[in-house]
Every structure is written in C-alpha cells, then in structure tokens.
Amino acid sequence: MTFQNPNREEVKQLLENAGNIAVVGLSDKTDRTSYMVAQALQNNGYRIIPVNPTVKGEILGEKVYSSLQDIPEPVDIVNVFRRSEQTPEVAKAAVEIGANVLWLQQGITSDEANDIASKAGLTVIMDRCIKVEDSILIGKRS
C-alpha cells in the first residue's frame, strides 16, 4: 500500500493539540534549517525539546537531550531532521516514549519507519515541513 500523509484537517488538529515537540537532530548552528524551523515553532507557542547527542547544554533556551528516551516528560510530536536511513531507530524510540506523531521533515521518507510507528498507533507524516504546515494551517497563535 502506498503511503499517504494525513489530510490537512487532520494535520491541523495534530498541531492544535501539540504541546511538546521533540526535534531530533536539532542543530545549535543558527544557519541550519533545523534551528530555523524549531525557532519558528517556538515563536509560535510550541515547546521545543532539542534532541542531539553531540550538543551539550541548551539550544533555543531549552535543555538538550541525547536521546528521546532521556526526555523526562511526555512528547506529542517527534519531528525528525535525520537522514532517511536513520529514521527507523527514531521511530522505535518514538514508540517507546509513547509519542503521538512521527513527523519526518521535507525530503525525508522511510517505509520502515512508517511501518514501525504506524503499527504502534502513531500518526506518521513524511516529506513535509512542520513549519510550513503550521504557517498554512494555524498561522500566528494569539
């Protein structure tokens, strides 16, 4: 069966109900796409939780965690900035921590990650930019 992202109304509901967004592969370099996307989401009221094993301290004023399993609070969306071949492991971790959504950024797809996450009941979004979808579907939060 061919993968299909949720429709726009479903994506809008996921974003409206999201609080904590773990950003896997969030860079501390301000010129990186992951940083700019996370900053835009943070500026629009989402709680960003950076996940990057090579960065210590904080990114965007939030404590950086080495793995999803290290995050001590619930995560609604796992937003992924990693190469496609690395996403099945991220999907397994997202299932393990009880996330609701596995979101692979634009240009990232993985049938294996989709199978892992969707079989565990997570909603899967692939090859879409969360910042773009948020801008189109939500706009500026009050």
Rank of each mutant, 00 (worst) to 15 (best):
A38Y: 11
A93F: 00
N44H: 14
V64H: 07
T30V: 14
T87L: 04
P72G: 11
F81A: 11
V55M: 09
T30H: 12
S34Y: 06
R83P: 00
L41P: 12
R47M: 08
P53M: 04
P53E: 05
Q42I: 08
A93I: 04
V37F: 06
R83W: 05
A93P: 00
Y35I: 11
V64L: 02
V37G: 03
L60F: 11
V51K: 10
V75Q: 02
T30N: 13
L68V: 06
N79K: 09
Y46S: 05
L68A: 07
R47D: 14
R83Q: 15
L60C: 13
Y35E: 02
G61E: 08
V64W: 04
V78Y: 00
K29V: 07
F81D: 06
V90S: 05
P88W: 04
V78H: 00
V90T: 11
L68E: 06
Y46N: 08
E62I: 10
E89C: 01
V37P: 08
E89I: 03
K63Q: 15
Y46P: 03
T87P: 01
D31G: 10
I77Y: 04
L26S: 12
Q86S: 10
A93Q: 15
A93W: 00
Q86D: 15
S34C: 10
N52W: 01
R32T: 08
D70L: 02
D70I: 07
L26H: 11
V64T: 11
D28H: 15
V55H: 05
N52Y: 03
V78F: 00
K63I: 11
T87Q: 04
G61Y: 09
A40P: 03
I49C: 05
N52V: 01
K92P: 00
I59M: 12
A40R: 15
P88K: 12
A38K: 10
V90F: 00
V51Y: 04
K56I: 01
P88V: 08
T87R: 11
I49N: 06
E73F: 14
E85T: 09
E73C: 09
E62G: 05
S34I: 03
E62T: 08
K56S: 14
S84I: 08
D28S: 15
A91C: 04
L60G: 12
S66C: 02
R47H: 15
V37Y: 09
Y65K: 00
I59E: 12
P88T: 07
I49M: 09
E85C: 00
T87C: 14
T87I: 03
N52I: 03
T87K: 10
E73D: 05
A38D: 07
A91K: 01
A91I: 03
R47V: 07
L68T: 02
K92F: 00
T87Y: 03
N79P: 07
S66G: 15
N43Y: 07
Q42W: 11
D76G: 03
I49K: 05
L41I: 09
I48R: 12
T30M: 13
G45R: 10
P74M: 10
Q86M: 14
Q86K: 07
P88D: 01
I48Y: 09
F81R: 09
L68G: 05
I77E: 01
R82I: 04
K92M: 08
Y35C: 01
P74R: 13
R32Y: 02
S66N: 14
S27K: 13
Q42T: 12
D70Y: 04
S34F: 10
E73M: 14
L68I: 02
S34N: 10
K92H: 14
V64R: 06
S27L: 12
Y35R: 04
D76F: 14
V90I: 15
V51T: 10
